[in-house]
Design a protein around this nucleic acid. Structure first.
Length: 466
RNA sequence: GGCGCGGUAGCCAAGUGGUAAGGCAGAGGUCUGCAAAACCUUUAUUCGGCGGUUCGAUCCCGCCCCGCGCCUCCA
């Protein structure tokens, strides 16, 4: 089965191929850096990371642009409250965002583009729109005239004809000709950052930022545009209106949207106050990869209900896979190859690939891995697993981890280094040999105290960090 | 009201017109000096409700109930 994605634009699953050569031109809406982003936001960024990794796995080159919105209403208000400059204020949260993203093992897009560094591209885009008669000005601000773009609503599948009015409608503090119109350029206000342009001093509206930067780096037509589902309307709809009005070409071939992270059956959001940041969860003692696993384990088009029970389950799931990895590495195996297991390994990879190809069905892909692990454990128990099968299983885990990236522990730390631990274990083995179980148990307990778990197996003692 | 998504075991959740993946938790077992850990087995006659289509529906259609999202900023 070919790689396919559900496209919000067509509301269908479609086979995916890049338009030009082997490179996927992709744009994703990044954070607005007015605060710490929460793990609901990171669900979307984790989805985008899984998408990236799977496209890479499938042999495509990536040209991925993510914006950072570093000038907007909230930023201006918050920075003012804290009496910081916009630059200092956004620098803080931009840094925090990328630290958190790194902790979650999110790959960096090829281009991270800050809005404030791309004002000329936005100005050019607005001028082009004006030349095409798609704009008007009102009280110093420039607006996009929705009436000039008949397909408006094609992404969100909304029919806006009922809202079409000739009357002037006052919405917010701006004066628009039509309720649907949106601002391209906001007139300068007192104490706000502003850029001088042919159409007046001011700052960009949110939507033009993404259109301008996407087209600047990726050309007229993108292969994929992705973001959270709440951006479908109006943000992505507006991007289409702007870009396609300029180019008269499709702005993006595929639109991929991820569902929300819920908490107690409600959208996790800043405004509801029901959110956790990554830092919150790390402070509670959870590992970043546990959160990554949880966010990645449910397919992106499904709502995911966040619970601490779910988080603990994620941690245990990772542990099960790491235990298998450790068992593989530490088992004494007879020489040879079990062909049946070889086939089983190939089948596992095939199932994993087919699941991921199917609109990134991570839940099904995980099932393939866990079924495989159980089968191999059983074979190990029954001494049917042979030396030559070892690398095949390693390959299965490698494929899995090239996407999920959770097997390597984040903390290699702890007070004891490996050789200290090995020495203690040897000490305990001597005590056991001498039937000094009290002494042996004391060593075991001391290690346990430091987070080192010992397992007595038929192949000797195995240990891991808890 | 319009548009969109969903309701599957205690929890998180796949999935298919032919009789329910996987993970966690629970129960049993194996291993062990004991333990822990690990591993194995097991757990839904049933997929929100009612009709319909069909030889057969959890999966298709209709209606209803419930939850969520967007329609203003929002991942």
């Amino acid at each position: 089965m070919a790689l396919r994605f559900y496209n919000t634009l067509t509301q269908e699953l479609e086979d995916f191929h890049p338009l030009v050569d082997n490179t996927v031109r992709m744009y994703t809406c990044g954070p607005t850096v007015y605060n710490f982003v929460h793990i609901g936001n990171f669900r979307t960024f984790t989805f985008q990371d899984i998408l990236r990794r799977w496209l890479s796995y499938r042999g495509y080159e990536l040209n991925h642009v993510m914006n950072v919105t570093d000038v907007d209403d909230k930023i201006i208000i918050n920075a003012d409250k804290e009496r910081k400059s916009i630059e200092d204020y956004t620098a803080l949260y931009t840094k925090a965002f990328f630290e958190d993203a790194a902790a979650l093992r999110l790959q960096q897009p090829e281009h991270v583009s800050k809005a404030t560094e791309h004002i000329p591209m936005m100005v050019k885009a607005i001028e082009e729109l004006t030349a095409k008669g798609c704009t008007y000005t009102s009280e110093g601000s420039t607006y996009f005239r929705i009436g000039s773009f008949p397909p408006y609503g094609k992404l969100s599948h909304n029919d806006f004809s009922g809202m079409r009015t000739g009357a002037r409608v006052d919405v917010d503090e701006y004066d628009k000709a039509d309720a649907r119109d949106f601002v391209l350029w906001k007139a300068r206000k007192e104490n706000e950052p502003a850029w001088d342009t042919p159409f007046g001093e001011g700052r960009p509206g949110w939507h033009i930022e993404c259109s301008a930067m996407a087209m600047h780096y990726l050309g007229d037509t993108l292969d994929i545009h992705a973001g959270g589902i709440d951006l479908v309307f109006p943000h992505h709809e507006n991007e289409i209106a702007q870009s396609e009005s300029i180019t008269r070409k499709p702005f993006s071939r595929f639109w991929l949207h991820s569902e929300h992270l819920h908490i107690e059956s409600q959208k996790m959001s800043k405004s509801l106050g029901n959110f956790y940041t990554l830092r919150d969860l790390l402070d509670l003692g959870y590992q970043p990869e546990t959160i990554r696993y949880l966010l990645a384990s449910v397919p992106h088009r499904k709502k995911l209900n966040f619970t601490f029970e779910g988080l603990k389950a994620a941690a245990k799931s990772i542990e099960r896979l790491r235990d298998f990895e450790l068992r593989l590495a530490s088992s004494k195996l007879s020489p040879g190859r079990n062909e049946e297991l070889t086939e089983r390994s190939e089948a596992a990879i095939r199932q994993f690939e087919e699941s991921m190809d199917d609109d990134l069905n991570t839940a099904e892909a995980l099932a393939a891995v866990f079924e495989y692990v159980r089968a191999m454990n059983t074979a190990l128990d029954d001494n049917l697993y042979l030396e030559e099968n070892r690398w095949e299983s390693a390959r299965v885990l490698e494929v899995f981890d090239s996407v999920f990236d959770v097997l390597k522990p984040t903390q290699s730390g702890g007070e004891l280094n490996d050789s200290d631990i090995e020495a203690k274990i040897e000490e305990r083995n001597q005590a056991r040999k001498a039937r000094d179980f009290k002494g042996a148990d004391a060593i075991r307990a001391a290690l346990m105290e430091k987070g080192i778990v010992l397992e007595d197996t038929k192949d000797g003692v195995r240990w891991k960090r808890k």
